[in-house]
Design a protein around this nucleic acid. Sequence first.
DNA 1: GTCTATACGCTGATAGAC
DNA 2: GTCTATCAGCGTATAGAC
Lengths: 196, 196
Amino acid sequence: MNARERLITSAQELLWERGYVGTSPRAIQERARAGQGSMYHHFKGKPDLALAAVRRSAEELRRVAEAQLDQPGTAMERLRAYARRKRDVLRGCPIGRLAHDPDVVKNPSLREPIHETLAWLEGRLAELVREAQSDGEIDPALDPASAAVAFLAALQGGYVLARAAGSVEPFERAAEGALLLLARAKPRPFAGAGLP
Amino acid sequence: MNARERLITSAQELLWERGYVGTSPRAIQERARAGQGSMYHHFKGKPDLALAAVRRSAEELRRVAEAQLDQPGTAMERLRAYARRKRDVLRGCPIGRLAHDPDVVKNPSLREPIHETLAWLEGRLAELVREAQSDGEIDPALDPASAAVAFLAALQGGYVLARAAGSVEPFERAAEGALLLLARAKPRPFAGAGLP
DNA sequence: GTCTATACGCTGATAGAC
DNA sequence: GTCTATCAGCGTATAGAC
């Protein structure tokens, strides 16, 4: 891997871990085993490198999520698999994490890839909800967009609760809880069946 | 307000806005209109002041939430009111926000008040879910703890999505979506409705 | 309690040699 | 492309006067 790539990768890791303010050019250089000159040759400065790193992280998350959500199986199975997918929970979401960084959020070009990725994910989840409704796994009366955004938010919030607890457990409980709420929102198997 | 109090308040605001790494003693002093000497007289240093500020924020959030959740009305109404309560959404949650800060999370004394507050809130929400189940507003078969943690996580995640979007709208959609999922998870109006 | 002086390492960058 | 030199300013204190 060349210096430019190593710099982007290192910046991605540090932004994920420490945020924008917490990440110094020097720390990026050290992790990338690149000198000052090298970094300032490839990038105009810290903001420029951060932009490249954020865009890269957005792409990567999208690729991973896409692969996961396009797996074989029913829609409900894929929603479940996505919620339960192996994650480094205590590190947080590499994208959602950035939304808490003031210097990222106030910069529109930095914020845009983050928003776009989350919006895409929400839309994709809504499609799966719709599909699960066709399959009779989720109540067709439920608004798919509302369900999807609440589901995605529950996962993002799960990271917050887990980090606060210093344990992955709250994430898992939030994810399972969200699945439970989704899945319960379906026509009762016996709805009306047991009426006197 | 004396200097000590002004320092704590200023630190609370800056931690909320910028996190631990992003907040310098100097910035706190300026906002508090206090000198260097004053700050180092009242506090051992930045970590000590941050601890006081975090504890204060935790207390405050708890007091506000407590008041909100103990309002008159049915349990389901109070859950709704809590989700819809007026918030400065784009500023994020003053407590949840800190869970994304590496220097806060790695310090057990800093993390503890955050975790405790969120855990308390989750427990309180679970009680309300149970109450709503007694009222027939939520399906009694649903696990209250799972529902509560998913609900709380959806709100926390709502902040993330809102900040990423630069708009309060995703928060509101996530909150309404979570309410919808909760409320749908109830006995159909006619499910056994005529039973003794 | 609050102020001023002083300190040292780090941040984020520029300049020019190789 | 990468390296080294250099820089002004900030971060996070400590010391001692008032």
